[in-house]
């Protein structure tokens, strides 16, 4: 049921974004919003709190994204909150990114970094990963403090991990 719902939402969102000519922006914003939703407990509880009226939760989304995200992104997120399916946001966002990437014959490359990457680093990283994997990539960068340092890149089933977190885990496993 959840998978069918996700597919239905993704198809609808993709068509709406495409109709507005904002597929790339919307899928990128949805992806970042999904990562924020996953990592931010306060945001997750506020948007999932069934004791709050739906319009109040939708208002939170609109205030949060106002001026920072495309109008389509705000409306689609508000739709998820309004239908009580905001918990599907990470799955929907990931599926939307995948759908948008496949439309361009691109593979999604999720990059987790302890710090934000500048545009030059993103460009070089995309080029390097494309070279390493032999695929054209849609790079999605997530700032994740748990990485501590370095980068973890996931392209399909392939994981390239050179993070401080992983090195510390390896040291810990030797104890």
């Amino acid at each position: 049921m959840s998978s069918q719902q996700v597919t239905a939402y993704v198809n609808a969102m993709f068509e709406i974004a495409a109709a507005n000519g904002a597929v790339a922006i919307v899928e990128d914003e949805m992806f970042r919003l999904a990562r924020a939703y996953e990592s931010n407990e306060a945001l997750r509880s506020s948007l999932s709190d069934s004791t709050l009226p739906t319009d109040r939760r939708q208002k939170i989304v609109e205030q949060l994204l106002a001026g920072k995200a495309h109008n389509v992104t705000v409306q689609l997120t508000s739709l998820l909150v309004g239908t009580g399916h905001v918990s599907l946001l990470p799955e929907v966002a990931d599926a939307l990114v995948k759908r948008a990437s496949s439309e361009k014959q691109l593979e999604v490359a999720e990059v987790r970094s302890a710090v934000a990457l500048n545009d030059a680093q993103k460009s070089r990283l995309a080029e390097a990963l494309s070279k390493a994997t032999g695929k054209k990539l849609n790079l999605k960068v997530v700032v994740d403090p748990n990485v501590i340092g370095g980068i973890v890149a996931t392209v399909g089933d392939e994981v390239i991990d050179d993070s401080i977190r992983t090195r510390l885990d390896q040291v810990k496993s030797r104890f």
């Binding site: 080029e127 990963l129 390493a132 980068i151």
Partner: peptide, 16 residues
């Protein structure tokens, strides 16, 4: 941190 990122990019780019 930036050096670690650049190092990663360099290593990945040099892998093939």
């Amino acid at each position: 941190q930036q050096e670690l990122v650049d190092s990663f990019i360099a290593k990945v780019g040099a892998s093939r």
